[in-house]
Design a protein around this nucleic acid. Structure first.
Lengths: 295, 295
DNA sequence: CGATCTTACGGGATTCGTAAACATA
DNA sequence: TATGTTTACGAATCCCGTAAGATCG
């Protein structure tokens, strides 16, 4: 009662070649097998598709009307499964990655270049957004992967650590501290200090360390983005601290980066994925690339 | 390597029901059979479509992307084969019929009504055109059936006789001949005579008969269509002859029809089909209806 | 422990290919 | 008669269902 895709292909081949012999050859099938396939298909649809006398073969009116329909069915069928296979083979597809801006700016470009080189058919979309939004995006499924610092809690997400990021001191090129190989918290506190704005983990941590060391730096200004702080430091307004992963972009902004002596502030950077949601092929590939690069 | 339509249906059912148990039931299939179908399909396309732990079932990202595509494939597939089956079952389709105007006007309407009643889904197109064009239309395949008089020759066509048509006399209602039950050629020739124009079989035959009877009617006018001749006769301009199959329309035009005494002019009316071209279901049906009605 | 999916395996239907029969130009 | 299609039939394959096993909540 039901027609198979093989029978449809048989119909198309026979209509195209106009001969059981040629059509069966093109299908890698014996002539009787093709004959049976057509016979069964005709029985299934309830009428003759070909008019055949042993010497002449032609489509019936119904067969002729069906031919373009059959062509389109086959084309769409093949197209659909080719697409699917290519997706699984990582020859095409797309991937949405959320990452905190510092990581997106400083670490992602070379990684994505390698990814692109290896999987040129995969369309990449990067959401460079703050940590909370990264976690939301992954939780909602808008992004399959998210890269940020490890937060205090992350329900429903799975975290894969990549590396531990230590904070470093950033000072203007003209600063007296610029000549030091390493800078202590105490030295930093003697300069005008630019802080991350209140409410951020970085501000809380900075305040805690300063308090523990009984230091009271002159807070010059607050900003909510590291790029802003970097520009302010570069302009000579003051000094600050930043995650080591920002080193590259800080240096490009004209800021001097130095290891920080004294209490170590460090934080895990890693990849988030949604629990109970398996990764797509491209996401899996990028996840592995991330883990291997840092692991 | 190749995916079957059954596997596509299995995929869709499983995606819809979210459970092997329910999906297999809806497919009238055992659970292991469905499991195997999905496994084979996944192997064919080169990756997992479902993420399954014994207690939870969900589409993979690739499966989710494929779902709408699969839906459309199935819908178009079913639609295409439903259409084809309905065509074979004469529940839908179309039929183009060529017929000479006299037949189309006088005989076709009741026949087509019966056809329509029996096959309400078949779309009918009637070409009411002169004999030569009827034959051309059938030869070219523009019309599957053609109804006309039997011509001297008809290469490449197959002729099925329907009935023999005798010519009758047509006179105005006010004519002295209107009171006769039967009219002789000689009586006809005594009146102003309206002829079919030169070159037509009817004109040649009329001339031949008149000559054989040594009659020389006053030719009042010529026309190329029977309807025109009918109107002229109805207006009292003269008398003429016409195929008996025109009797109905002639009477409707106000013309009196009488049997013709003397030499009999008769001609075969029948259906033409293209040789070596089998008829579509609808054409076959109408052909049979024609043959049975007249046979 | 229970519900659900997977694996294992035997039976049955479908499909295939070879060889012979058949039909048409 | 020659060519191309169908029929016949044995074999291989595929698909299905039952029963047992595995796994997760």
């Amino acid at each position: 009662m039901n027609v198979s895709i093989k029978q449809l292909r048989a119909f198309l081949a026979l209509a195209e070649y106009g001969s059981f012999a040629e059509a069966s050859e093109s299908l890698h099938l014996s002539q009787p097998a093709l004959s049976a396939a057509i016979r069964n298909m005709e029985q299934a649809v309830g009428g003759k598709l070909f008019n055949r006398t042993t010497r002449h073969l032609a489509l019936t009116p119904e067969g002729r009307q069906f031919l373009p329909v059959a062509r389109q069915l086959q084309a769409e069928w093949d197209r659909a499964f080719d697409d699917l296979s290519r997706r699984f083979a990582l020859l095409q597809g797309h991937l949405r990655l959320a990452a905190m801006p510092s990581f997106a700016i400083n670490c992602l470009p070379p990684l994505l270049q390698r990814f692109r080189q290896q999987y040129p058919g995969i369309n990449l979309v990067i959401d460079d957004i703050v940590m909370e939004l990264v976690l939301d995006a992954v939780r909602d499924g808008r992004a399959e992967l998210g890269v940020t610092f490890e937060p205090e809690q992350y329900d429903g997400l799975h975290f894969t650590p990549l590396f531990e990021d230590r904070f470093i001191a950033i000072v203007p090129a003209g600063s007296p501290l610029a000549s030091c190989q390493r800078i202590h918290w105490q030295q930093l506190a003697e300069q005008p200090f630019i802080t991350m704005n209140r409410g951020s983990w970085m501000r809380a941590t900075t305040d805690r360390v300063m308090a523990a060391l009984a230091l009271h730096p002159a807070s010059l200004a607050e900003a909510s983005q590291l790029a802003t702080i970097g520009r302010m430091v570069a302009s000579g307004l003051g000094v600050s601290i930043a995650p080591a992963l920002c080193q590259t972009s800080m240096q490009l902004q004209g800021v001097q980066c130095r290891p920080l002596e004294g209490p170590v502030i460090q934080r895990q950077v890693g990849v988030f994925t949604r629990k109970r949601h398996p990764l797509s092929g491209p996401a899996e590939a990028l996840h592995q690339l991330l883990c291997r690069h840092y692991g």
